[in-house]
């Protein structure tokens, strides 16, 4: 790849890691969203209030038809998805079906911080298959990182999802957002 194209691609793939744009999700949390990442409105399905899961997803650059994603959500007590942060971790830090097919990679769960708050942190490498429902799909390698922040009432999850081509370049933007995170339901 030429230096010219590489330079252009890098400019496209990695937005400047500045302070980010302040974002507030109702009464649930604040954080600085990376410059250049766009919020997408949720689609059809149960509402946030029905699920008792509140938050937003922000999308960055894309490769292989998949955009880099920063998700930040608050799981209220009694939510319909994950009863406890431990159950969330066990379903995401290890194969949710109890067996690792196809060579996915799951990292250890460590302690860390999201902003000034204690968090459980883990990474994983998974796949998306493309085209969907093809006999011999291409596998798109995906990198994900999670910060799970337990609070007195419920818990928070900050999630990074990226096609492998873009994962390294954009991780710092996610980490900056994590560092700025402040839960309002504590």
């Amino acid at each position: 790849m030429s230096h010219f194209f590489l330079a252009a691609a890098l400019c496209l793939a990695a937005a400047p890691a500045a302070g980010g744009q302040p974002y507030t999700e109702g009464e649930y949390f604040t954080m600085a969203v990376p410059d250049g990442w766009t919020r997408k409105e949720p689609g059809v399905g149960l509402s946030d209030a029905e699920k008792k899961v509140f938050g937003a997803e922000f999308f960055g650059p894309a490769a292989d038809g998949l955009a880099v994603l920063l998700g930040a959500h608050y799981y209220a007590p009694g939510n319909l998805l994950h009863a406890t942060p431990e159950k969330f971790i066990k379903l995401h830090a290890a194969p949710a079906i109890g067996v690792n097919l196809d060579g996915k990679v799951y990292g250890p769960v460590k302690t860390g911080k999201a902003g000034n708050y204690y968090a459980k942190v883990f990474e994983r490498k998974t796949y998306e298959y493309q085209p969907k429902d093809a006999l011999h799909p291409k596998k798109i390698h995906i990198f994900e990182k999670f910060y799970v922040v337990p609070v007195k009432n419920g818990f928070y999850v900050l999630r990074y999802y990226a096609p492998m081509d873009l994962a390294k370049a954009n991780l710092k933007h996610f980490e900056a957002a994590v560092a700025s995170f402040k839960p309002l339901k504590r």
């Binding site: 290890a94 194969p95 690792n100 097919l101 196809d102 060579g103 996915k104 990679v105």
Partner: peptide, 10 residues
């Protein structure tokens, strides 16, 4: 950095 869980045969 990540100890890969040994992939099962598919």
């Amino acid at each position: 950095a990540m100890a890969a869980v040994k992939p099962a045969a598919t």
